[in-house]
Write a protein that binds this DNA or RNA. Structure first.
Lengths: 210, 210, 210, 210
DNA sequence: CCGTAAACGAGACGGTACGTCCTGTCTTCTA
DNA sequence: TAGAAGACAGGACGTACCGTCTCGTTTACGG
């Protein structure tokens, strides 16, 4: 008796036919995560994921056109909703420490690290994925960083012409660099060194930049 | 990347049989470079390179055990010998500008950019390649950076406890980050912004460089 | 091929629920015929027929459990009711000529020829279909042939021990043989040659075989 | 030291590279034959044959572009070299009896019967296969029949205007018809009936059929 | 006129097979 | 030995259909 489209939290925006099975979705993401954890990116094939999840291959392709798209969803799953960080009241350094510390923490999970490494590898093949990744992975994290800096500027902690974009390129660049090239580990101690380099001790009464 | 370390200046340490054909080597590296330029990493298969070079597949495997090893050789080929930069006499900023500028310049070549992107992608699958890449690609460039900083410290331009390693993570990290994720281009202007962030204007009456 | 034998002249033997839509039936048979005509047996998939008819796949399976069953119905549709031929009064040869001529005529329609070819192909996989085909396709045609021969025997044109079954194997065999193997066309001229071979001119004293 | 192409019974007409492995060939044909015998045409997939033979799928496609081409080779294998039958000295009927009897004999082997049925089914999809089949399967058998008739004509047993082609359509048509439609078995007794129909007893003065 | 029950469109689902591409190894012949 | 050629086992790709199954909606009929 309800001719109108449907309720607002409707999962199936006017779609007809049998709905996607949530269990299949979960099984697939679970299988993919397991494979990434146990055997790495190399072992992550669409075929293998389907087999491990006990699901038809078509059910994978129905959801994700490519391995990369699947990886983005695994990323989103593990990331939860990105929300802008509230001001801690302990200053910009503390805010950044929390912000980057969270990333470092997550990277301790092999599956998570492999997910990110795989995403980058896959994106080198696939411009669409690269774009998607910027939108879903890169930008949200940067946005949080911009928010922290904006709060600090408002609080008079940082100069209004603080070059956020470059600083974000520095910190995320450094983290990705270590993650992907592996010349050094991504640790909490590393975060501290980055923070010291970016926000040198005020030293004298006078501070760095007026 | 030679399959077996031969004697120093001896090209064929006592080996018997027909010598390797230099032309084959050149044809292969040329074919691989062309494929990277024209069709990207995705199209770079051992099979495809051999076919394009008009060479037997075995002749590829005889030289490089894997795609990654081939990529490293393409890198070395395009890079030439890495040599430590001489002091320019124009200060650390100028030295860094030249140093990073060279990298940015090279990246304008699509084939070159694709080579680096491919190397990283490949290394995510292949720990041996990752290690080799650190040794041949990452470290030599960092070493040059360390050299510049050491000269600047000796000249009294920088404090002896300047954190070179973190700064190098910043600059190379940022460049790789932009190259691999593609959220922004790697330009000369970007190098300038990095330099300004790392070496802020002295602020006081006296100007930076004596 | 109805899924369940309903009451005699009752279209919906006591059933409740929404009745089958005749238009769907027609659309399906039309779509299947078109596909057979235009793209042959290979393109005849249950999925494709449904799609072409703009009908749900389930609506196909509701009517026919298999491709073969559908083909039998297409055959029946195109064949109409098989009725025993009346004596023409022009003799057994004329009767046979009309009888086989009708078959040859129909085979000029590509869709029809493809229907028969498809039926045979499908029956090689499906014993049930083979049996059904004998019942609905093979036997009715043979029955008509037997009838003609019986009339001829009654009229004294043929000997009572004329071997109808073998003759029917000859004529239908030859037609199917040419249709399926394609080494020669099924033409009216071919019918004439068959008739001449089966019913040699009574000739004069001298006969074929010395 | 032999620059010229190679000996005349050379299996590899100037081909270079690793030669095809005979064992692979045998394994494949064996596997296909077994599948046809045990599970019929329906179970005959390129994939399944490869798996059963313990061979890579590519090794199947390297030899045969399609299931049909494989079937033709299985046919050839089982058929051996078709040679024109020598005159038996017992007359045309005896010759035909031997000739058709051989076919009937072979059809007692399920694998063989399934091979022929599959070939016809497959040919309905594939015009190239149909042509190949006429060339390799249909025509050689007909040729043998023509030869028998030619001998009989030479011996004065048959009239020079005996319509061989139609007779061959009759006998092979009837055999295929029974094989494919299955309304009756292909037996030696059936061959006798065909022979009686084609070559009625020479008749003495008195009545048509002995 | 209201409930039951089937038909209908849509499309998800577990499967099987398709035909192609690539990997890394091998075998053969020729230089 | 190198090199051209190409076979080989194996694995994954992405697609097409199979026959079955849920959905939400529509259409008869029988109470």
């Amino acid at each position: 008796m309800r001719p109108e489209p449907r309720g607002e939290d409707d999962k199936r925006g006017g779609r007809t036919g049998r709905p996607r099975d949530e269990a299949v979705q979960r099984a697939l993401i679970g299988a993919a995560t397991d494979l990434l954890r146990e055997r790495g990116y190399r072992a992550l094939s669409m075929e293998g994921v389907a087999a491990r999840a006990g699901v038809a291959k078509q059910s994978v392709y129905r959801r994700w056109p490519s391995k990369g798209a699947l990886l983005v969803d695994i990323y989103m799953e593990g990331m939860g909703e990105e929300s802008l960080p509230a001001a801690s009241g302990h200053g910009v350094i503390a805010d950044f420490r929390a912000y980057l510390g969270q990333t470092v923490e997550r990277l301790k999970d092999v599956a998570w690290a492999n997910t990110l490494r795989s995403l980058v590898a896959e994106a080198q093949n696939d411009p669409d994925l690269a774009a998607l990744m910027v939108e879903r992975v890169v930008e949200p994290r940067r946005q949080a960083g911009r928010h922290i800096v904006a709060q600090a500027i408002a609080a008079g902690e940082l100069s209004p012409d603080f070059d956020v974009e470059t600083v974000l390129d520095f910190v995320f660049g450094a983290i990705w660099y270590r993650l992907l090239l592996g010349h050094a580990a991504v640790t909490t101690e590393f975060v501290e060194r980055m923070l010291r380099q970016l926000f040198p001790a005020p030293v004298l009464p006078r501070r760095t930049k007026g």
